[in-house]
């Protein structure tokens, strides 16, 4: 096929593929051999992660808390019970995470945020182990490695929490459904709805997005509403 387009493209060298092919799949295809202990991970975490994510991965200030909200019972079932509670505040990474590869791969490619791809393979194993320990998935004396990672996967709190039985994957690869789960009504006249306003912004939020007068063109069918508090400059 390359012959169709003479002069275009070339074979990659194996060193090139090695340099870029870093992805790790749920079946751990792509995972480089290596290992790292919880203890080592704690050191990495406190040096390179805690400033943003908090010492226990609890920080709200930069992003979602990474750890929290999972229980021993979840680890047994592989389903995080708190995800069923509409009143549960926030969802941590660990609550959602179905595949351990995802955590390893993401830390390896993207963290620390301002110095991505700076961690050694050992550091990635270690800090992953540390996060798993924070969530009580592995004990404090654990060493995570390419040889035992598949077993640890079997203890992830939300490993059974995912479904692809839906109509929103555009292809037959995942064997979802084709029929959408939700459909609207095509009623055109005297439809059975009661147009009652159930939600709108409270008055105190009126200027929360800035003065909307300045967010609309100064000419046209309408203007932006002046949302400054009465009397403001």
């Amino acid at each position: 096929q390359a012959a169709k387009f003479p002069g275009i493209g070339r074979d990659a060298t194996s060193a090139e593929v090695k340099a870029w092919d870093i992805d790790v799949r749920p079946d751990f295809h792509g995972l480089p051999p290596g290992s790292g202990s919880v203890a080592r991970g704690q050191q990495v975490w406190e040096d390179k992660c805690a400033s943003c994510h908090g010492v226990f991965g609890e920080s709200n200030s930069v992003f979602n808390p990474l750890v929290g909200g999972t229980t021993r019972a979840d680890i047994e079932k592989g389903r995080v019970a708190n995800l069923q509670r509409p009143d549960y505040p926030g969802r941590t990474t660990m609550m959602k995470l179905p595949t351990l590869s995802t955590l390893w791969d993401y830390i390896n490619r993207a963290m620390p945020w301002n110095q991505p791809k700076s961690l050694s393979v050992e550091e990635v194993y270690a800090v992953t182990a540390y996060m798993l320990n924070l969530a009580d998935v592995v004990p404090a004396d654990f060493t995570l490695s390419d040889r035992n990672i598949a077993q640890v996967q079997q203890r992830l709190p939300n490993r059974n929490g995912m479904s692809s039985a839906h109509a929103m994957w555009p292809g037959k690869e995942l064997r979802g459904t084709v029929k959408p789960d939700v459909t609207g009504s095509a009623c055109m006249k005297d439809c059975a709805v009661e147009p009652r306003v159930a939600s709108l912004l409270p008055p105190h939020a009126r200027n929360a997005h800035g003065n909307l007068a300045e967010q609309n063109r100064g000419v046209g069918p309408q203007r932006g509403a002046d949302t400054r508090a009465a009397g403001a400059a």
């Binding site: 995080v80 995800l83 069923q84 929490g161 995912m162 692809s164 109509a167 929103m168 994957w169």
Partner: peptide, 13 residues
């Protein structure tokens, strides 16, 4: 996240 606490994965469309 669905009401039953499961997540739909690979919802791309």
């Amino acid at each position: 996240l669905m009401p039953d606490g499961t997540h739909r994965q690979y919802t791309s469309l």
